[in-house]
Amino acid sequence: MQAFVKTLTGKTITLEVEPSDTIENVKAKIQDKEGIPPDQQRLIFAGKQLEDGRTLSDYNIQKESTLHLVLR
Rank of each mutant, 00 (worst) to 15 (best):
R72I: 15
I30S: 00
T22Y: 09
S20I: 07
D52R: 04
I44Q: 07
S20V: 05
N60K: 10
T66V: 14
Y59Q: 03
G53I: 07
L69V: 05
G35P: 02
G53Y: 10
L69F: 05
N25E: 12
T14F: 10
N60A: 08
T22E: 02
K48D: 07
E64F: 13
E24D: 08
S57P: 02
N25C: 09
Q62C: 07
Q2G: 04
E34N: 10
D39M: 09
P19S: 09
I13H: 03
A3V: 15
A28P: 00
P38Y: 12
V5H: 01
T55A: 06
Q41G: 03
A46D: 14
K11N: 08
L67I: 13
D52M: 05
E51Q: 10
D21Y: 07
T66N: 05
V5F: 05
E16L: 13
K27C: 01
L50Q: 01
D21M: 12
P19C: 07
E34C: 12
R42H: 14
H68K: 07
T55L: 09
T55C: 06
D39W: 14
A46P: 01
F45A: 03
E64W: 13
M1E: 03
T7A: 05
I23W: 02
K33G: 04
A3I: 15
H68W: 14
R72G: 11
T66P: 06
I23Q: 01
E16W: 15
I61F: 10
Q41R: 01
A46I: 06
D52Q: 05
P38A: 15
I30D: 00
N60V: 05
R72K: 14
V26A: 02
Q40C: 10
Q31C: 10
I36F: 12
E34V: 15
A46K: 14
Y59R: 00
S65N: 08
E64T: 08
F45C: 04
H68C: 10
T14P: 06
Q49H: 12
F4M: 06
H68G: 04
T66E: 09
L67K: 01
S57V: 07
L15T: 01
T7F: 15
L15W: 00
L8Y: 14
K29R: 06
E16M: 13
I44K: 05
D32W: 10
T7N: 05
Q2T: 15
L71K: 07
E51G: 04
K27R: 05
K33E: 07
K33C: 07
Q2E: 07
Q40K: 11
S20T: 13
A28D: 06
K11I: 10
Q41C: 05
N25W: 09
S20Q: 11
S65P: 07
R42A: 11
Y59N: 02
K48N: 10
A28L: 14
T12Q: 07
T22R: 08
K6Q: 12
L56K: 00
R42I: 15
G10C: 05
L67C: 01
T14I: 14
Y59T: 01
P19L: 11
I61P: 03
Q2R: 14
E64R: 06
T66I: 15
L43Y: 02
L15I: 14
F4G: 02
R54H: 13
V5Q: 01
T12L: 13
L8T: 14
I23D: 00
I36W: 14
V5N: 02
E18V: 13
R42Q: 14
K48L: 14
G10T: 03
N25M: 15
E51K: 10
S65H: 08
G35D: 05
I30W: 00
T14L: 11
G47Q: 05
S57M: 11
D32M: 13
K63E: 12
D21W: 10
L50E: 01
E51I: 08
A28W: 11
D39I: 10
A3N: 03
D52V: 06
E16V: 12
L71S: 08
K29F: 06
I61N: 02
I30G: 00
F4A: 04
F45T: 02
H68N: 08
Q62P: 12
P19M: 10
L43V: 04
L69E: 00
I23M: 03
Q40E: 12
I44A: 06
F45M: 07
Q49M: 12
M1N: 03
Q31N: 10
M1F: 15
V26N: 00
S65T: 11
Q40A: 09
N60G: 14
E16H: 11
P37L: 07
Q62G: 15
I13N: 01
Q62W: 11
V70H: 11
Q31G: 06
Y59L: 05
G47H: 05
P38D: 04
K48A: 10
L43Q: 01
I23A: 02
T55Q: 08
E51S: 08
V17T: 03
F4E: 04
L56Y: 02
E64Q: 10
I13W: 06
L15R: 00
K11L: 10
N25A: 14
I44P: 00
G53P: 06
F4Y: 13
E24R: 14
R42P: 01
P38C: 08
D58N: 06
D58G: 04
R54L: 12
T9S: 14
A46Y: 09
E64M: 10
L15Y: 02
Q31H: 14
Q41M: 15
L50P: 01
T9L: 10
S57E: 12
A28V: 12
L50V: 04
D52F: 03
K33F: 08
N60I: 05
G47M: 04
D58A: 06
E18W: 13
I30N: 01
P37R: 09
N25Q: 14
D39Q: 11
T55E: 03
S20G: 12
T22N: 04
T7Y: 13
A28N: 11
D32P: 02
P38W: 12
L67W: 03
A3C: 15
T9M: 11
G35N: 08
T66L: 11
Q2A: 10
T66W: 09
L15P: 00
V26C: 03
I13D: 01
G35K: 07
P38R: 13
T66H: 12
V17S: 01
K33Y: 08
L67A: 02
D52K: 04
T9G: 13
P38H: 11
V70D: 07
L8G: 13
P19H: 07
G35H: 06
R42V: 15
A28G: 09
V26F: 04
L15V: 09
E24V: 07
Q49F: 14
L56N: 00
K6A: 07
D39K: 10
E34T: 15
K6S: 09
T9A: 12
A46N: 15
Q49R: 10
E16Y: 13
E64S: 09
E34A: 13
D58W: 12
Y59G: 01
E64P: 04
L15F: 07
I44Y: 15
R42E: 14
E16P: 04
S20K: 08
L67N: 01
I13P: 00
F45S: 03
E34I: 15
R72L: 15
D32A: 14
Q41I: 12
T22I: 04
S20L: 09
Q49A: 12
Q31A: 13
G35T: 03
L43G: 00
R42F: 15
S57G: 11
Q62I: 13
Q49V: 15
N60H: 09
V70C: 08
I23K: 00
Q31D: 05
I36E: 02
K48R: 12
I23P: 02
I36A: 03
S57Q: 13
S20R: 09
K27G: 01
I13M: 05
L43P: 00
Q49G: 07
L67D: 01
V5D: 02
K48W: 08
V17E: 00
K29V: 04
V70Q: 10
R72N: 13
P38T: 15
Y59I: 04
S20M: 10
